[in-house]
Computed example of a mutant assay.
Amino acid sequence: MKQIPMTVRGAELLREELDFLKNVRRPEIIKAIAEAREHGDLKENAEYHAAREQQGFCEGRIQEIEGKLANSQIIDVTKMPNKGKIIFGATVVLVNVDTDEEVTYQIVGDDEADIKSGLISVNSPIARGLIGKELDDMVNIITPGGNVEFEIIEVNYV
């Protein structure tokens, strides 16, 4: 199976979610199923069926997270020498050449991506356009609004 790149923070967040699902959510659902069983006939017991459905979602997510963590390649850019090259995990400050608007992005794994927080997936068009580029390079990125030219003004490994 292909390794899934993720930042140290991304792996920590997945481990926290896994811990919550196993130690809080799973016991809550088991308790809800037990309580619903006490209400008698399971065929027409909506609470029982809802709890079983939640159990299915919870167990599925636990398996998904365990699989991702087992196949993860955790990349800690803070331990790498920063030579100004954009790599997975790097935080990049760009200036839109036309508008002088600055944007900051960190290139992260798919699970960590949150554009509102400036976290972009390594598989996104923007990240794919940036990977391998260097400080002071000009880069054309195809955005929903068209082709935009950016200058790379900062590359940080934080």
Results as ranks from 00 to 15, higher is better:
47 E>Y: 03
57 F>Y: 15
51 A>Y: 10
86 I>S: 01
131 I>S: 05
82 N>Y: 09
113 A>G: 02
64 E>D: 10
67 G>S: 10
51 A>C: 12
105 Y>D: 01
116 K>G: 12
87 I>K: 04
63 Q>P: 00
105 Y>K: 03
78 T>W: 00
93 V>R: 10
48 Y>V: 05
127 A>M: 08
112 E>M: 00
94 L>Y: 04
123 N>C: 01
140 N>S: 14
68 K>W: 13
132 G>R: 01
127 A>V: 07
127 A>N: 07
120 I>Q: 07
151 E>M: 15
132 G>D: 01
145 G>Y: 11
50 A>H: 10
96 N>L: 02
59 E>C: 06
69 L>E: 08
105 Y>W: 05
79 K>R: 14
110 D>S: 09
76 D>H: 12
96 N>S: 00
76 D>V: 13
135 L>V: 04
97 V>H: 08
101 E>C: 11
55 Q>L: 15
80 M>S: 10
113 A>C: 07
128 R>S: 12
49 H>C: 00
149 E>W: 06
79 K>Y: 07
128 R>H: 11
125 P>T: 11
57 F>I: 10
140 N>F: 13
117 S>M: 14
144 P>Y: 07
113 A>S: 08
95 V>E: 13
108 V>G: 02
95 V>M: 11
127 A>Y: 01
151 E>Q: 15
78 T>P: 04
91 T>F: 06
109 G>H: 05
136 D>L: 14
64 E>A: 11
150 F>R: 05
84 G>Q: 05
54 Q>S: 12
88 F>T: 01
56 G>N: 11
73 Q>K: 12
74 I>V: 15
96 N>Q: 05
112 E>V: 02
130 L>W: 00
56 G>D: 05
149 E>C: 11
63 Q>L: 12
89 G>F: 03
131 I>C: 03
121 S>A: 06
47 E>I: 03
107 I>C: 06
151 E>F: 05
49 H>I: 04
113 A>T: 00
123 N>K: 15
80 M>G: 07
117 S>A: 14
148 V>R: 02
59 E>S: 04
106 Q>M: 05
64 E>R: 08
104 T>E: 12
48 Y>D: 06
142 I>H: 14
104 T>Q: 09
115 I>N: 15
97 V>K: 13
126 I>A: 14
145 G>R: 13
109 G>E: 07
64 E>I: 04
129 G>K: 09
